[in-house]
């Protein structure tokens, strides 16, 4: 079962820019990687794409659970 989240805010501007260019921006929904996230990285999947974000910076992304 996939759990869906939504990005509400990305605190670091440069990271926000980069993620926006990759298609991951405020308002977009995504699912956390199905198995336990690999230590140190948040691995997310959206639009069928998988990206890994350094966990220190991932903490700078505010996300909200939208449904499950």
């Amino acid at each position: 079962m996939n759990i869906f989240y939504e990005v509400t805010h990305i605190k670091i501007d440069s990271l926000s820019d980069f993620l926006l260019e990759m298609g991951f921006y405020s308002g977009v929904s995504f699912s956390l990687f199905a198995c336990t996230p690999f230590k140190g990285f948040l691995i997310i999947e959206f639009d069928g794409n998988k990206i890994a974000i350094d966990y220190n910076d991932a903490k700078q992304i505010e996300i909200a659970l939208i449904n499950s």
Partner: peptide, 9 residues
């Protein structure tokens, strides 16, 4: 120190 890492898989 400017560091963030985003990797496309």
């Amino acid at each position: 120190p400017v560091h963030y890492s985003v990797v496309e898989l």
